[in-house]
């Protein structure tokens, strides 16, 4: 049984239908890449999974149980953490406070302290800046903080929306190395990315969204050689 299953999910913004009934599976332990152009519905898909949006119809199953229509705070408690587009850092909070909000759902103090230590070990830059206002961090540091904060909820499924957006290539490589490491530590990941090369290199399966529908889905090796993907996203004629 997949960890996350979307069946015929339709999402509307007012009169406009943004997702025309999509099916998508994420198996336990995988990194699944969700690719597509701007406006294809990638972020909409993530927001629907995390409960920020309610599907007009269809089902979202997490661990076999329906979660569509639940409020976001309930979905976090079930084990899905969403790092939103634009990172959603609390800029007027310190780095440490941002991490504390990430652990908001948990009451096991010892477990939180251990996970905080693990996150700080993974992102040493954050340890140096614990007392600093998060708004003063660089883009890459903010992205690391956003991911670290999400990990403090101890998610089974991590939703990442454009983690490489606006970052220098060297930082992007660092972020992707961390994504693989988080996955190797046992967290399943659904990754939305514009950086198709990096995403397909990291992923174990990929979906391509086109204007609200799944255009194709396959293993990364196959997607990379597909003419459709090469033309549209890899800039290869």
């Amino acid at each position: 049984m997949p960890l996350l299953e979307l069946h015929n999910v339709k999402v509307r913004y007012g009169a406009i239908e943004a997702l025309h009934g999509i099916d998508l599976n994420v198996e336990q332990g995988q990194i699944v890449a969700l690719l597509g152009a701007n406006g294809a519905g990638k972020s909409t898909t993530l927001r629907t999974v995390s409960g920020l949006l309610r599907p007009a119809s269809g089902t979202v199953l997490f661990d076999g149980k329906p979660i569509q229509g639940l409020p976001p705070h309930k979905i976090v408690e079930l084990g899905i953490a969403h790092v939103p587009e634009g990172r959603g850092i609390f800029a007027n909070f310190t780095v440490d406070e941002n991490l504390a909000v990430g652990a908001y759902t948990r009451s096991d103090k010892a477990g939180v302290a251990a996970d905080r230590e693990r996150v700080l070990e993974m992102f040493p830059r954050l340890r140096e800046r614990l007392r600093q206002n998060a708004g003063t961090l660089s883009g890459g540091e903010q992205q690391m903080l956003a991911i670290g904060r999400a990990l403090l909820a101890r998610p089974r499924l991590l939703l990442l929306d454009e983690p490489s957006l606006g970052l220098a290539p060297q930082i992007v490589r660092q972020i992707f190395a961390l994504i693989r490491r988080i996955n190797a530590d046992g967290t399943t990941i659904l990754l939305v990315e514009q950086n198709v090369h990096m995403a397909l290199d990291a992923a174990s399966y990929g979906y391509v969204l086109e204007v609200g529908s799944i255009a194709m889905h396959d293993f990364p090796a196959t997607l990379k050689t597909s003419d459709q993907v090469r033309k549209a996203y890899l800039g290869v004629a």
Partner: peptide, 13 residues
């Protein structure tokens, strides 16, 4: 600061 992100952290808005 940001109701949407807070709800993603598990805060009951």
């Amino acid at each position: 600061f940001d109701t949407k992100t807070a709800s993603l952290m598990g805060v009951n808005i």
